[in-house]
Amino acid sequence: MSTLASAYTPSTTGHPVRQVLARRPELFTLMLLVALCAFVAAANPDFLRLATLFDLARASVVIGLFALGVFVILAAGGIDVSFTAIAALCMYGVTKGVVEFAPGLPLPVVFTLSIAIGLGLGLVNGFLVHHLRVPSLIVTIGTQYTFRGLLLTFIGTIWITTLPPQMDDFGKVALLTTTSSQGATIILPLFVLILPAVAVLTWWILRRTLLGRAIFAVGGSPAVAERLGYDLRSIHLFIFGYAGALAGLAGIIHACSNRQANPFDLVGSEIDVIAAVVLGGARITGGTGTVVGVVLGTLLVVVINNVLIMAGVPSTWQRVVVGAFILIAGAFMVNRRRA
């Protein structure tokens, strides 16, 4: 790997390890993840139990789906903070609709409905970002409050604690089972497979299609991309639509996984997701990043959020740790460009 790196970037100087990291920042993420896991495992061997790992896998699905959506937007030089509001609206709106109007609706239809609503709201984002020509952060802060306000004002505020049976069952279908230290049976749900599937799809779109080229081109320089003939409008619609659809999917999975639909859930976790993407090596100014990095970044954030307490770090420190990681990783990515 190091010979490849030096062959392709003869101008970079410094230690070979630095050169490899400069070309493949996700290796840095991997090192952080391994180091963190080793630290937690050394402090508390329970970390390596299957039950813990199952919990981590389960927790990674929703945040990972969000992160893949955000990554596609970030690759094109934008940012989105409204996806959690989209997910909450899809989750609660669809669940409530199914409970009240169509309790027997087949599961695939439920999922399609949620994804379609997410897609629609994402397209609204894309349309506004394209036509208002202001930073997408400000537009999506506006739509975040709009979507959430719509949900809580017009759809409902009451927890749905009993899901329709088809959704409830879906959350319980096991891929693997194990027994916890207390003797309870713990399952690895089947839906964890959705994350790798969507990751492969995202990788394929970004690396194997013309659309993917266009997304990275726009992220590198919108002006140049437009002059090359890429249609900015369809790219904006696609990236925000895709992130919206993934948010819809993540929302309905969140409901199935928790076996309840709480309209106040999800909103507030945006920073964790953006942290996951940035920790995975995607630059916030666009044009870079890999799907593998995003998945590693997701695992890193999930580990920080879920098991620091196992290593004896009080849960009050969680935000400080994630915040510090964002700043360190962000500064590292910037310096990579200079190296």
Partner: peptide
């Protein structure tokens, strides 16, 4: 200092410090 010194974009920097400041207040 982070924005000017290390070249972090203001969005990312202030998102990070938002979490950091909130976290410190919690701690």
């Amino acid at each position: 200092l982070l924005i000017a010194g290390s070249g972090l974009t203001p969005i990312l920097c202030t998102l990070g410090t938002q979490l950091l400041f909130t976290g410190l207040a919690v701690v």
